[in-house]
Design a protein around this nucleic acid. Structure first.
Lengths: 113, 113
DNA sequence: TGCATATATTCAAATATTAGAATATATGCA
DNA sequence: TGCATATATTCTAATATTTGAATATATGCA
């Protein structure tokens, strides 16, 4: 599954604190690079590298305004991903009926071999 | 933000084709290791390593049934993540008003410095 | 034109991830 | 008890990621 593996790559690329922070800013609206440098606590070069990686993956894009590069969010999957990072979840899913607590029980899956 | 960074780590760990494939199976129900070996096309040792990583991250757990280890999904964030991997999205988000096409325009963000 | 600002790229070192091979452990059954 | 099955762990080599430092490029303005 072609599409799936490219989404996995996308998520892998994004799963980095600095990149998430960048995207959290961009989801609020357009930001230029030096603004992002301020929000994050990263070197100019490093911010630029992260932006470059995100851009090559088609996650963000920019327009030019004079000397500024104004970045904005492009990939529609990102807001959903950021949502998941913030959303409230219960501690754990309900276990299978057999016996999640004792960890002893009968396997009832579809055995293949 | 303590919680956020641990979720980023979680997503990073999961962003791997074999691990996604494992989780796609487990979301359907309990599976033992040799079943997973069959579904995926991976060596026993490698499947076990992925399971171990997922388990240490609290994403899955298992119960024992004789010689079988029966794994199941534990972390409630995972179904949402798998959903995002399959969901249909438009090509791109609507660009900022100024001029996504020409990539020329006025920056209207909140300049910080 | 030349300089300052804004941003990108290249390079290299440090570190992390991944996979296979070999080996270890645990369980049920003869 | 001993063997076969099911699974885990350890070690290692290959590869990928991340970062800082240095340098390059592009634009507006004096």
């Amino acid at each position: 599954m072609h599409e799936l593996s490219s989404r996995i790559d996308l998520i892998k690329l994004v799963a980095h604190p600095a990149r998430i922070a960048i995207l959290e800013e961009l989801i609020k609206g357009v930001k230029c690079v030096s603004d992002l440098e301020g929000f994050l606590d990263l070197s100019q070069s490093n911010v630029s590298q992260h932006l470059s990686a995100l851009r090559h993956a088609g996650i963000i894009d920019y327009f030019v305004d004079g000397r500024l590069r104004c970045y904005f969010l492009k990939n529609p999957l990102i807001p959903d991903l950021l949502e998941i990072l913030k959303k409230d979840y219960p501690d754990e899913l309900p276990g299978p009926e057999c016996c999640p607590v004792t960890k002893k029980g009968k396997y009832h899956g579809d055995r293949k071999k």
